[in-house]
Design a protein around this nucleic acid. Sequence first.
DNA 1: AATAATACCTTGTAAAACAAGGTACCTTGT
DNA 2: ACAAGGTACCTTGTTTTACAAGGTATTATT
Lengths: 108, 108
Amino acid sequence: MTESLQIQLKKGVLEMCVLALLSRGDNYAYDIAARMAEAVGMGEGTIYPLMRRMQNEGLVTTYLRESSGGPPRKYYKLTKSGALALEAQIREWLAFEAAVQKILGDIK
Amino acid sequence: MTESLQIQLKKGVLEMCVLALLSRGDNYAYDIAARMAEAVGMGEGTIYPLMRRMQNEGLVTTYLRESSGGPPRKYYKLTKSGALALEAQIREWLAFEAAVQKILGDIK
DNA sequence: AATAATACCTTGTAAAACAAGGTACCTTGT
DNA sequence: ACAAGGTACCTTGTTTTACAAGGTATTATT
């Protein structure tokens, strides 16, 4: 296997999911958090440090838009680099999934 | 989804794999570590605290056997409780896998 | 005016994977 | 006899990071 995949898994699975969501269209953290909460039980407090990290890594850019109700939303947009990162992480995820599947084997 | 699945994922994926390995037969930490290193890149330093934890949780018991070469091996054996934990964790893993797959969706 | 929903963010805590090191046993080569 | 290397155990310190809990501000609803 590649190298440090659990790190990639631990650090990467949420990041990958956020990247995947953004690949379908720009979105703001509060909504991303809600979707991730429903899907995999992520808490809201997790999203903001994560988005900050992703922005620092150049995976996303941001812009502000007013909301119909409530404070302005900070939308996140995938960069080219982010799209590439998504592809790479999907490959890693699939490899990890396969490795686990292999260990689980016939137990299923 | 259930409740705190990332916690279960983070804390659980390695534990699940070790349980799965042990379900095929007793084994000792050094060998488990080697298999896990090959499969998912786990480091040796990770296995001993993990096995300790699993023993404290009652998932495994241990016994010593001499080795043909080198120091005696501490074998780990799955308990009934460990087997049940394995089943539960597999169910959680499959649910998590499905959730991620759903988020990845058509990107694949 | 007060409440609730939206939406942003920060801080402190806890878990745990890892790297790096350390101990000790046994075999093999010289 | 001795050194080197593989086996196998374990510990410590660092870093990462998800989370809970809280805090702020805006707008709509009552």
